[in-house]
Design a protein around this nucleic acid. Sequence first.
DNA 1: GTTGTTCTGTACTTGATAGTAAATAATGGA
DNA 2: TCCATTATTTACTATCAAGTACAGAACAAC
Lengths: 191, 191
Amino acid sequence: MARPRSFDPNDVLDIARQMFWQKGFQATSLDEITAASGVAKPSLYAAFGDKNALFLKVLDRYHDGILGWAERVLAQPGSARDAIRQWLTGFIPYCSGEKGQRGCLSINSAADGSLDRAEIRKSIERYNRRLEELLRARLRADRAQFGRGFDPDVTAHTIMVVHAGLLALAHQSPESRRVKSVIDQVMNLVA
Amino acid sequence: MARPRSFDPNDVLDIARQMFWQKGFQATSLDEITAASGVAKPSLYAAFGDKNALFLKVLDRYHDGILGWAERVLAQPGSARDAIRQWLTGFIPYCSGEKGQRGCLSINSAADGSLDRAEIRKSIERYNRRLEELLRARLRADRAQFGRGFDPDVTAHTIMVVHAGLLALAHQSPESRRVKSVIDQVMNLVA
DNA sequence: GTTGTTCTGTACTTGATAGTAAATAATGGA
DNA sequence: TCCATTATTTACTATCAAGTACAGAACAAC
């Protein structure tokens, strides 16, 4: 009925994610996104709204990707211990070495005081809540396998904290060996 | 011999710290610092150099403050366990509630991709290294009090990760009760 | 083809901000 | 009192980025 889009919005979101992740929200200009994606500004504005709205879409997509993956890993058969260890281990490449340098887009965004707080906060809160729920549900399901004093709720939260800490320190590009040793030690709490 | 300074540089650094901490590097303009401190831009440039240099001085000062406090707390008599627990507990006000919202200036800066990486990184790396050294030294000193499999080096690093995680999640303003429960649980690893 | 609609590209406006030039004020010393 | 020196003040420049106006292109329906 009219001229069709010449680009795939998801492609643009992926490119924008990469740039926001690497350089942060403020330091990434729409001109750069335009240059990298080949999509001119008026098209970006038409498709996504202003810069904040674009960023929010990028962030939501990022969150959905991680949550989807967490759901898959944590739904695996076997013990909760193994599932959670595997889940944490999967982050090692993102917590170490060159790739770790950029950290986690969600944590970076939470730390970026320049962002329009209200909506970003909501997105991040929702993400963290759902992630913690996945962990908590998995731990509760396997409750029988744990010791008497085991508290799945507190443990789920502690794992969230460790997860955030590993990704916060990822900016230093630590060796993956060190990340692994922390995971190993923390897994002692899941027993 | 010449006209004296009309302001105390440390006062300005404290004001700038507060603003950088709250709003981030990019979103804090020199005009705002000028307005808040009453010191005009040319004086800021003369005293501190450009915006990056000013920020670096603020960050170094921030690091020194925390390190000095950590040294005092961790040097206390008594067990390493108690000292470290007390050290972590001291962060609770900064990890929860309203005050937690701004997180940690150091972690925020590491996450801010817009900063001139090289020098900021160096400052943060040095800070983390020294902090971890303090923890490690304290744990090693009390080695005899711990179980056979206890590894002070790994444990010191794990505490660093938990510490970073609590401050990374502080932006959500969690209840202090939750922060405390994580500290309690993690202290089980120091045994 | 023609037409109505939606997308695209160029070029622009507007606002903000890092950094600076130059004149002026304040001090200690000769 | 005057000078040399350093700080301050005001005003400016230059740059860069967000957002937009408008003309033209690409499609579907008829």
